Amino acid sequence: MSAEQNNQADSQSAEKETVDAAYTEGVDNPENGASEPAQQIESELDKVRKESEENYQRYLRAQADFDNFRRRTRQEKEELAKYASLQVIEQLLPVVDNMERALSAGKEGKDYEALLKGVDMIFRQLEHALANEGLKAMDTIGQPFNPEFHQAIMQVESEEYDEGIVVEEIQKGYLLKDKVIRPAMVKVSS
C-alpha cells in the first residue's frame, strides 16, 4: 500500500471514531438533542409494555370466565340429567297413591266389581300421565308389517288379510313422541 492510501485509510478510521463518539455522547448525554429520539423510543416501549400487560390480564380474566362457564354448564347438565324424570314421577305419584288405596280396599272388602272398576280408573290415570309425556301405543292390527315398528314372532295363514299384514298383536308397542321405544310383538299373515 502506498503512503497516500495509508493516510486515506487512517483519516477514514478517524472519521468513523468521531461519528461513533458523537453518537455515543448523544445517547449518553441527555442534555444533547440526539437523546430525544432515544427517550421517545423508551417512552413508546413503556407504553407498549403496559398495553401488553393489560392484554395479558384481560386474557387471564377471559380464560377464568370461560373455565367458570364450562364448569357451571357441566354442573347444570349433570343436575338436569339427575332430575330429568322428576316431572314424570310427579305425575305418577297420584297413580301410586290410588293403587295403594285400591289394594287396601281389596283386602278389607270382597267387592271385586268395585275393585275392578277402581283398578280400571287407575289404569286410565296412568295412561293419561304417560300420554302427557308423549307416550302412545302403536296401532298394529291390519297394518302392513314394518320391521321398524313390529317384531314378528310368527307367521299365520289368514283368509281375512293379504300377505305381510299384521293379524294379531301379542304385546303392545309404544312410541315416545316419534321414537320407537318398544316394537310391537305381532303375528303376520303369510
Rank of each mutant, 00 (worst) to 15 (best):
Q91S: 13
L93P: 05
P94C: 05
V95R: 03
V96F: 14
M99I: 15
E100L: 10
E100V: 07
E100K: 04
R101A: 11
R101W: 03
L103I: 14
L103E: 13
A105G: 03
A105E: 13
A105L: 09
G106S: 10
G106R: 03
G106P: 00
G106D: 08
E108L: 06
E108Y: 02
G109N: 07
G109L: 02
K110F: 09
K110V: 04
K110L: 07
D111H: 01
D111W: 01
Y112T: 06
Y112E: 03
E113A: 11
A114M: 03
A114W: 01
A114C: 01
L115K: 01
L116A: 13
K117N: 08
K117Q: 12
K117T: 12
V119Q: 01
V119R: 01
V119K: 01
V119D: 00
M121V: 06
M121C: 01
M121A: 15
I122K: 01
I122N: 14
F123W: 02
F123T: 13
R124H: 10
R124P: 00
L126R: 02
E127H: 03
A129Y: 06
L130N: 04
N132S: 11
E133D: 14
E133F: 12
L135V: 15
M138F: 07
D139N: 09
D139A: 04
T140D: 15
T140L: 12
T140E: 14
I141T: 11
G142W: 12
G142S: 11
G142T: 13
Q143V: 06
P144H: 12
P144T: 07
F145N: 05
N146R: 08
P147R: 03
P147T: 02
P147I: 03
P147H: 07
F149M: 10
F149P: 00
H150M: 10
Q151F: 13
Q151T: 12
A152Q: 13
I153G: 09
M154K: 14
M154S: 12
Q155H: 11
S158V: 08
E159G: 03
E160I: 10
E160H: 05
Y161Q: 08
D162V: 00
D162I: 00
D162C: 00
D162G: 06
D162K: 07
E163R: 05
E163W: 00
